[in-house]
Design a protein around this nucleic acid. Structure first.
Lengths: 354, 354
DNA sequence: TTGAAAGCGCTAACAC
DNA sequence: GTGTTAGCGCTTTCAA
């Protein structure tokens, strides 16, 4: 049943040439092969349905044209669009993706180890950023292994990183609320005070805070909630906000650290009888497809996720082709404000001054 | 900078043994290696930070412990959870995943070709099912290549398939509406009449239709809309439904073929001034995380997606281990009805009879 | 219990 | 232009 394996020698024999000639017509670079032989070889290849063994080729070339894509959270909304970007350029360049899911630092270390055994040519890390330092990545860098990170905040600036400017996005979001006339703010932050805080959550909180400070505003502690980036977390946080505030202390504008929590928030507000945007403006970060179809549609900062993937892949491929690391660089991508309905129009009266 | 490659010979030399001895302590099966030598070898391995070359090993073993995961639509909501299931069991079994995105049959054929060159041990296909016959898969089967499909409807019953029972899910959804007392129905179907219809859309339409027939009900053509499985598609379809129906002909219950379209529908209904579920009950198929947080929360049929992934991976691994195909089988998984708020309670009056 | 030797399928010097 | 040869790093007979 199973096709017997046919090798380059079989082709050579059938075509009456040497294996190296076959190899040359296959890879066809420097060497010139006579037209007659070349055609004959090509024909035999087709006839025999010969399929070159890429593994054997890798042995000699010392390159597998394979890159390891290491991620921690498959269900992270960034994963799919980033991967699409990565895949798009890698495929065009003839590279394959080996997917490794690794939760936690230990998992990541294990994944690196086995992928190196598999002789991947390089890595793209798209894992959560849980801390600023990652010794195992610094080590990987020192071993000369080509890799690039997406969406991590490593303080080792000799590592090539693609970052999305979470701080700026939060700042922009908050400014947007300002520009609409709001002065009484609340937020549902991401996991900023768990044991290992997510760096993006920290940065988003920071951006929000900076914008407030800039305007000399402070926020009541009861208007600052902490969520966990989930729908449920956003829902609960908003419920709590409503429960612990009164009409007089309640914010008129909410910055929700990510889109999942924003959806949860919308629901809690609806159930609490608050209208968005009339009673409460809501802005968030993240522009998953459903964000445009909530009620009301969410004003959000769109993360340049597929671009991040493409850039990462492109830089890695350049590195691989050059055979040496590019100038280490941290590329920071900005988010784009997409105004929809959840923040409403500019406030008219001054009655909202908090 | 770059670590020089250290091979099994280096280890052997350092440890004062032969390469084959090192190989044996590494793979440690039949052969007994003296304790002293074994320890010495292990120590040298650690010292040198030796990393066996999996590629070289594959050459001899004729197995790469790698499987190709071929998908058409990265952004398909099934992709992430299915992949999680697949990854979970494959990793536990020591297999690696090579991800190949391939749009269309031609892309799939190309992906198969290059992955076979990469010597993957088997395949999992999680692509859209666009047609019932796929000659290239039948061919792959005949070549003796181990593979399994998820969510495809192939009429070649000699191929191992994992299916989700779309027809049944739609039937159940519709029955649920019935059980609540509805008699006037509408639907937003998936892409059932495009040039290459999606089989799942066809099946869901069929299940809906069967349930209606069973109750001897017919549906006004104007209450049957066709969408494209997107948020936008659902939104537009529902708008059209409202536009082309009057209060007297308008359905009281809607079956929306997937969750994205259901979200769009909810928005259109809201904007049209219809309350869900009071004025219109809505049920859908697909239970992406956001489905529980729409307003109102959607009653939906949850697809057993991660289970599908796990089963597929498990069966494939068994096949690989056995070295021969299992009894060809099409495993059909059922969906689970999750009742939330979008269908409301049982209708009281009889005024809704259509 | 261990080592020597022969490859896996391919490419790349090096001859001719 | 083309063939011969020597490996890539590993496993696996086959002897010892």
């Amino acid at each position: 049943m199973r096709e017997e394996v046919i090798t380059i020698r079989d082709v050579a024999r059938q075509a009456g040439v040497s294996p190296s000639t076959v190899s040359h017509v296959l890879n066809g670079k420097d060497r010139h092969v006579g037209l007659a032989k070349r055609e004959k070889v090509l024909e035999v290849i087709r006839q025999l349905n010969y399929r070159p063994n890429a593994i054997a080729r890798s042995m000699i070339r010392r390159a597998t044209f394979t890159i390891g894509l290491v991620i921690t959270e498959l269900q992270n909304p960034l994963f799919v669009p980033v991967t699409e970007g990565v895949e798009e350029v890698l495929r065009a360049e003839g590279y394959h993706i080996v997917l490794a899911s690794a939760s936690g630092i230990e998992g990541e270390i294990r994944a690196i180890e086995t992928l190196r055994q598999q002789q991947v040519d390089g890595f793209i890390f798209m894992s959560l950023s849980l801390r600023y330092s990652s010794p195992h990545l610094t080590q990987l860098k020192e071993a000369g292994v080509p890799f690039i990170t997406i969406n991590r905040y490593l303080d080792d600036k000799d590592i090539n990183q693609i970052q999305i400017d979470d701080r700026e996005a939060a700042y922009t979001a908050t400014q947007h609320l300002f520009s609409l006339g709001h002065t009484c703010f609340g937020t549902v932050a991401g996991p900023i005070n768990s044991e290992v805080p997510r760096v993006s959550a920290l940065q988003r909180y920071r951006g929000w805070h900076e914008a407030l400070q800039e305007h000399g505003l402070s926020v009541l502690p009861e208007n600052v909630l902490i969520g966990d980036y989930t729908f449920e977390g956003g829902y609960k946080a908003a419920q709590q906000l409503l429960a612990q505030t009164t009409l007089s202390t309640r914010p008129t504008a909410l910055f929700i650290a990510n889109e999942s929590m924003a959806v949860g928030t919308l629901k809690a507000l609806y159930e609490g009888g608050l209208r968005v945007p009339q009673d409460m403006a809501v802005v968030t970060i993240g522009d998953a497809p459903f964000v445009a179809y909530t009620i009301p549609a969410l004003t959000a900062l769109a993360l340049p996720v597929d671009e991040a993937g493409r850039i990462a892949a492109r830089r890695l491929v350049e590195w691989l082709k050059a055979g040496q690391p590019p100038q280490a660089e941290t590329i920071t991508l900005s988010c784009r404000l997409i105004v929809r309905d959840s923040c409403g129009a500019k406030l008219k009266g001054m009655g909202n001054q908090g």
